[in-house]
């Protein structure tokens, strides 16, 4: 299987890709659902009405997701190495951790930016997995990208999931060279920052359905 111009073992491909998928499903969907749910139930309004600093809520969401995501990544890595015999370089784990934090940041930001158009948590909880699974098929998670049309792969390169999956796969399968790549930091960073800016403008603490 040649996913990125160098041979990648099936286990490195799937463990890297599925980790990225799990991160997106866990962070993107659950932040979106948690925030929309809390907003529509009036909890956010109540928080806003208290002297709680607004950043505390955001920080809480991020910290919670970082913990859950790291737990997920640890389980994924442990399974891949112990059960399936994945043998990445030692410094690959540092890269995996860095990409995990990057992914949590980016997907949290995008989720927050999207909450404005989600009027119910029901809507959020069906849109989240739908977007995640659609994106994962074009992003080299469930399918090797060489089975896909070229334009679709190129488009996915600029969406957040593909760079994350690809860089995790890269880090886990690398024998020589640097485990760190710069382009996921640029793509995910740009998405994250843009989404945070958008979220600052559009975010609302009040229930939308009234």
């Amino acid at each position: 299987m040649a996913a990125a111009g160098y041979p990648i073992s099936a286990i490195a491909f799937y463990s890297g890709g599925l980790t990225a998928y799990g991160l997106m499903l866990g962070t993107f969907t659950s932040v979106m659902v948690a925030v929309v749910g809390a907003r529509e139930a009036g909890w956010l309004k109540r928080f806003r009405a208290s002297p709680m600093p607004p950043g505390a809520y955001l920080a809480g969401q991020i910290v919670f997701n970082v913990i859950v995501s790291i737990a997920l990544v640890v389980v994924m890595m442990a399974t891949a190495t112990l059960v399936y015999g994945l043998r990445p370089r030692a410094d690959a784990y540092a890269a995996v951790l860095a990409y995990t934090l990057l992914g949590v940041f980016c997907f949290t930001a995008i989720a927050l930016a999207i909450t404005r158009v989600m009027t119910t948590d029901e809507m959020a909880s069906s849109a989240g997995p739908f977007v995640t699974i659609a994106l994962s098929f074009t992003s080299g998670v469930f399918l090797p990208p060489d089975l896909l049309p070229h334009w679709l792969v190129t488009a996915s390169n600029y969406l957040p999931l593909e760079p994350l999956a690809q860089s995790l796969q890269h880090a886990l399968s690398l024998r020589v060279g640097s485990v760190f790549q710069w382009h996921p930091f640029i793509v995910l960073g740009a998405w994250g920052v843009a989404a945070f800016v958008a979220a600052r403008w559009t975010f609302t603490w009040q229930p939308l359905r009234k």
Partner: peptide
């Protein structure tokens, strides 16, 4: 300020 909102739901 203290608030008791009209609609309430809790975690």
């Amino acid at each position: 300020i203290g608030l008791v909102l009209q609609e309430s739901d809790f975690d």
